[in-house]
Design a binder for these strands. Sequence first.
DNA 1: GAATGTAAGTAGGCGGTGTCAACATGTGTC
DNA 2: GACACATGTTGACACCGCCTACTTACATTC
Lengths: 196, 196
Amino acid sequence: MNTPYHHGNLREALLARAIETLSEKGVEHLSLRALARDLDVSHAAPLRHFPTKTDLLNAIAVEGVESLIGATDTAMAHSPGPARLRAMMLAYIDWAMTHAELHRVLRNPDVMRHTSETLADLLTAFADRQRAEISYAQEQGWRRNEDPAVLFLHLVSLTAGTAIVMTENVYRDPVVTPELRDKIEASIDLFLGAAK
Amino acid sequence: MNTPYHHGNLREALLARAIETLSEKGVEHLSLRALARDLDVSHAAPLRHFPTKTDLLNAIAVEGVESLIGATDTAMAHSPGPARLRAMMLAYIDWAMTHAELHRVLRNPDVMRHTSETLADLLTAFADRQRAEISYAQEQGWRRNEDPAVLFLHLVSLTAGTAIVMTENVYRDPVVTPELRDKIEASIDLFLGAAK
DNA sequence: GAATGTAAGTAGGCGGTGTCAACATGTGTC
DNA sequence: GACACATGTTGACACCGCCTACTTACATTC
């Protein structure tokens, strides 16, 4: 009865422990064998559920994107129509800051080079939502005569860029201060509020 | 005389070959031992010059940042005063697109977690230059009554974000088209030209 | 309810990796 | 010319992802 032959739900346990160690030690120090050790299981057991390490990272990325989409969804649901675009951008950045390592997995080249079908679908769906939100805002009068594709590129670049600048400390210390959140909002508003 | 005991300039050869393989196979497939094999040298020889793999990546990052700074320098030198800020941003993005893998090294978490002194210095110097350029533009009347810190955050996020969106294909296919460069410029100008 | 096919675990091995220690070989300096 | 020192080599260790063959438990079917 103790240490049964079958773990029961090794797949979920692997994912949970992986995300845990991810936020502790970073992507590059995540190993399938260490994961197996942590869960008291043979070193090859994880391969039954994730044939390759990339598959594991891919599954984690799926959970990450789902979490991200959930966060933006609730944020947008609590915002009135015209403010939804702003809520979406801020939710993305906030999510990235509170899930830094998960966010890092999402921009791991090895993951993004061979994304699973479901991950790719989630990403394009999210992108479509961003595009839809832009066109809604334009209908409301925001930057009405601007090329939507340009606005989309700008929105994506700015949100992803801000998230990255916040999570990785590219420019070391200078950026991280208490009133930082205000500056982030102000920065976003340079884009959103210009034609207000 | 053939295959002498001492390589002569192994350090430079390692860096050169590393950058070469980097653009071919990506960061995660760079190995010290493979590098040593390529240069017909024993597997531990690289450790004399780069005690750890992170040190090698760090040195590559230094070369990368120097190259990036050089590119922005010449771009800015060829632009009249008020257009320098725009030239700086576009030079950054262009450099990232033409040196995608080198750019990826610069945002490799393992590199950025323990940056060498010289790399950190280069980065802060570059950041200072961006700040200086912003304040110069503000003196010229551009977004004069805006918080410089917010402008800096926006500039950094937007440039880094655009560079990343272009080099990694986060949203798969939709973004990469021939007239893309025009859209990039238009996107940048949403920020730069707003208060013109 | 036994037989059986399959999913999920184990054991072991292969080739690869980064890193270390001990040793060898040149090079530059007094 | 002796000697310190930088730069190579060799061999080992512990780890890694991944593969194959084997074993165990579960589920389905007759």
